[in-house]
């Protein structure tokens, strides 16, 4: 592992937390103002009766919006823009949706099992028209288990950066450089967990989340391919170009 001074770790924590807050799409205060308003039954039914392809398109648009914020987050992480452009693309292609899932716990209401979506809080039943009940259940379960860790914004920021800077992604050209950066971020995460007096198990729990995230993302890709096989023209003409670049 690289030797990093305490001052350097503090600086990294500061930079990454700031980047996270500047790019997190919704501030906690804003979410509170939305007053955790849930969709009413007839609104839920309206989503459920949308044609499958319309609901897919809506979700693709929402995911793409969230991903644009993650790209901004990545750009502000110390060292990310110093990587070669191939590796920047590789890391974002593999990790941006994972970070969206991590960030989801900020807009998730564990008590009601709802997530902020399209203006209100939505339960899994809102997404029924997608025809991916198993994936939706897993995404909600993941958000719930992330919430149960009660991470602070600092911890969430560093964990997001750790996920994004995964050195084991395929097709990296300068793996060693990514590895160094990820190790530094891990040290900063450990530093913050220690400072916040979190119990020892939290880091291990977060490590388990990394494999859960990979599984969620590969299942998203599978569902997309199945959808595309039936509706190739909808994907080609109606899905956001960035979404197609990332998952096509």
């Amino acid at each position: 592992p690289p030797t990093v001074s305490m001052a350097e770790l503090d600086h990294l924590v500061q930079i990454i937390s700031k980047s996270h807050l500047e790019t997190c799409q919704y501030l906690r205060e804003e979410l509170q103002q939305m007053s955790w308003q849930n969709f009413l039954q007839d609104e839920v039914e309206r989503y459920q009766s949308k044609p499958r392809e319309v609901m897919w398109q809506l979700c693709a648009v929402k995911i793409t919006e969230a991903i644009q914020y993650v790209v901004e987050f990545a750009k502000r992480i110390d060292g990310f823009m110093d990587l070669c452009q191939n590796d920047q693309i590789v890391l974002l292609k593999a990790g941006s949706l994972e970070v969206v899932f991590v960030r989801m716990c900020r807009v998730f209401d564990s008590q009601n099992n709802t997530v902020y979506f399209d203006g209100k809080f939505a339960g899994p039943d809102v997404f029924k028209a997608l025809g991916c009940d198993d994936l939706i259940t897993s995404v909600f379960d993941f958000a719930k288990s992330m919430c149960s860790l009660h991470l602070t914004e600092d911890e969430l920021a560093l964990f997001s950066a750790f996920v994004l800077l995964s050195a084991d992604r395929s097709w990296l050209q300068e793996k060693l450089q990514v590895e160094k950066l990820q190790q530094k971020i891990q040290l900063a995460l450990q530093h913050v967990l220690q400072k916040n007096q979190r119990e020892d198990g939290v880091l291990n729990k977060l490590r388990c989340k990394v494999s859960a995230l990979r599984s969620l993302c590969s299942r998203h890709t599978e569902k997309l391919s199945a959808f595309r096989a039936i509706y190739p023209d909808i994907v080609r003409t109606h899905f956001p170009p960035l979404y197609k670049e990332l998952f096509g």
Binding site: Q68, V71, E72, K75, R76, M81, Q85, Q88, I89, L92, K93, P241, L242, E245, L246
Partner: peptide
């Protein structure tokens, strides 16, 4: 590069 045109563009835009 052509394959990831938008991502390239987003990365090149200066951070606001």
């Amino acid at each position: 590069k052509e394959k990831h045109k938008i991502l390239h563009q987003l990365l090149q835009n200066s951070t606001s």
